[in-house]
Design a protein around this nucleic acid. Structure first.
Ligand code: FES
Ligand code: FES
Lengths: 155, 155
DNA sequence: TTATTAAAGGATAAAAAGGTCCTTTATTAT
DNA sequence: ATAATAAAGGACCTTTTTATCCTTTAATAA
């Protein structure tokens, strides 16, 4: 449903939302270590996200990636769209041509409510709001189960 | 979430459930044409499903694939398990290590109810019951949107 | 028993996804 | 200016997924 690339991009962008700002830019290396993603692969993803104006970057010493005020208002669906395109998320769960109620597959009516829920989450709140929610709820961002004391949800 | 291979296997097995029995075996070719799957690929999948005792086959004239009475009591999850393994379905939506409520990812509480629903569907009813439901509801099995008059849900 | 049919199985190929490396470019500090 | 730093970009590699082809085996019918 989502490629690894999209998952990495989502987690890393949320990491940026929590830990970076225009004054505190973050290198690929730092994020790759914290989220446990191969860093050259993440570098590619970030290049693409910068081109897509989802995140921002500056080169040179103390350079790195960060979210501009504009970036913070993007939503998670923009990330997915930028990396995977939207079809992957919208497509039929069993791979039929179209997913719509005029031509429902055997699991269509199970899948649709879920899709609506997750789309709402991904489309209707900003990256910053999403990141805020994660902090508040104490849910986890790292692919490896990290010790919460090392990198607690509170900023 | 599911590989193409699994999707093909599910659709094709449901096709068998609807159209075959011990006296009326069906060739790979027929199914591949009806469900619109590359036939050598489906042949491989069916070989594997036979080895996994999900479907049955006989060689020679009037041979083909069919569901034995035992096969009909298998469920869709057995198909997925046989082709993809269960991890793919059970894993975290964002790719974190484990999907459980002690370590929830940002979308965990959206994903879990859906997963439970679809697992229930795939685990708790037999292939035959599933196929019956499809006939009753008139949902679609083909990957290409076929004209219902060509291959209607009624046997 | 021989020809025919259809699956089984092995070998391979093409495409996509995932991942790495190296050179170039921009920025900053000295 | 120059050195250091970190992203940008291009080329390339590996693995997995998807797909094809060809030979062998088993079953049946004539
Ligand atoms: S038609 Fe399959 S999920 Fe909607
Ligand atoms: S932890 Fe991510 S879906 Fe459960």
């Amino acid at each position: 449903m989502l490629s690894n690339a999209s998952k990495y991009a989502i987690l890393s962008t949320l990491y940026l939302a929590e830990h970076s700002n225009e004054e505190r830019k973050i290198s690929v290396k730092e994020i790759a270590e914290n989220i446990d993603i191969p860093s050259p692969f993440l570098a590619k993803l970030f290049q693409q996200l910068v081109r897509g104006k989802i995140i921002s970057s500056t080169k040179g010493p103390h350079g790195g990636f960060y979210l501009s005020e504009k970036n913070k208002k993007k939503n998670v669906l923009d990330i997915i769209d930028n990396i995977d395109g939207l079809n992957k998320l919208n497509g039929c769960f069993l791979g039929l041509n179209e997913c719509d109620s005029t031509n429902p597959c055997p699991v269509h009516y199970i899948v649709v409510p879920f899709k609506n829920n997750i789309l709402e989450k991904f489309r209707d709140i900003t990256i910053m709001e999403f990141a805020q929610e994660i902090s508040d709820k104490g849910t986890f961002l790292a692919i490896n189960n990290i010790d919460p004391s090392l990198d607690g949800p509170a900023e």
